[in-house]
C-alpha cells in the first residue's frame, strides 16, 4: 500500500459517500444517471467475485464490502425508493448500457492476461470477469457525462461526485507508476491502459470543473 493508492481509495470512498449523502439526506437523485450507477454495480460485482475466496487484508475486504453495498443501495434508492425515484429524470438518461457492456465482455474474452482460451476453468472465468470489470469501469461514467451535458444546471454535490470519481483513478495511475519503480515485475498493461482511458474520459469535465471553481461560476458543460 502506498500513499497514492490510499489517497485513491479514500477519494473513491468519498465520491460514493457524497452521492449517498445527496440521495439519503435531500432524498433527490436529480442529475444522477441510473445507468452509470447500474454499470458501477456490475463493475463491483464482477470485480469482487473472489471476495470470499482470495483474502488479501481486512482493509481490502472491508472496502470491497463498502463499494458493493453502496453501489447496490444507490441503485435500489434510485429504482425503488418512493421519494428518490420521483427525482430521477429517465428522459435525460438515455444511454444504452448494453452498447458498453457487450464490447467490454468481448474484449475481455480476447484480451486478458491469461490469453489461454482452452482452459475453461473457474480461474479463467474469474480472470475474464475481472478484466471485463476493468474495461467496463473505464466507460461506466459515459452515461453520467452525457446526462450532465443535457442537465443545464448541475448541482454542487453531483459535480463533486463526478470530480472525485475521476480523481480516484488519476491517483491510481500515480500508484501504478510508484509500484512500477518500487516493485520488480509489477507490469499490468491491461489495468494501466484501461485506467488511463478512464481518466482521459474525465479530461473535459475536469477542465470545466476547474474553470467553474476558478471563476466561481456555476458548473456547466457545453452541449
Amino acid at each position: 500500500m502506498n500513499i497514492f493508492r490510499l489517497a485513491g481509495d479514500m477519494t473513491h470512498l468519498l465520491s460514493v459517500l457524497v452521492l449517498l449523502l445527496k440521495i439519503h439526506t435531500i432524498k433527490s437523485c436529480a442529475g444522477i444517471s441510473l445507468k452509470t450507477q447500474e454499470l458501477y454495480a456490475v463493475v463491483f460485482a464482477t470485480r469482487y467475485l473472489d471476495i470470499f475466496t482470495s483474502y488479501i487484508s481486512p482493509y481490502n475486504t472491508m472496502m470491497k464490502l463498502i463499494f458493493l453495498g453502496s453501489s447496490f443501495s444507490i441503485v435500489w434508492y434510485m429504482r425503488y425508493h418512493k421519494i428518490v425515484r420521483r427525482s430521477y429524470d429517465k428522459d435525460q438518461d438515455t444511454f444504452r448500457p448494453y452498447i458498453l457492456m457487450l464490447p467490454c465482455l468481448i474484449l475481455a474474452l480476447l484480451i486478458n492476461e491469461k490469453f489461454t482460451f482452452k482452459e475453461i476453468s473457474t480461474s479463467f472465468f474469474l480472470f475474464v470477469m475481472w478484466t471485463f470489470s476493468l474495461y467496463l469501469e473505464a466507460v461506466a461514467i459515459l452515461p453520467q457525462l452525457v446526462m450532465l451535458q443535457r442537465t443545464r444546471n448541475i448541482d454542487n454535490l453531483t459535480g463533486q461526485y463526478v470530480f472525485l470519481l475521476g480523481a480516484y483513478r488519476a491517483l491510481y495511475i500515480l500508484n501504478w507508476i510508484y509500484r512500477y519503480f518500487t516493485e520488480e515485475h509489477f507490469v499490468h498493461w491491461i489495468t494501466w491502459i484501461s485506467g488511463l482511458v478512464q481518466t482521459l474520459l474525465y479530461a473535459d469535465f475536469f477542465y470545466y470543473y476547474f474553470q467553474s471553481w476558478k471563476n466561481n461560476v456555476k458548473l456547466q458543460l457545453p452541449a
Binding site: R5, I56, Y172
Partner: peptide, 10 residues
C-alpha cells in the same frame, strides 16, 4: 502468485 499481486488492488 504473480496473479495475486495483480488483484491486490480494489
Amino acid at each position: 502468485e504473480k496473479e495475486k499481486d495483480a488483484h491486490d488492488e480494489l
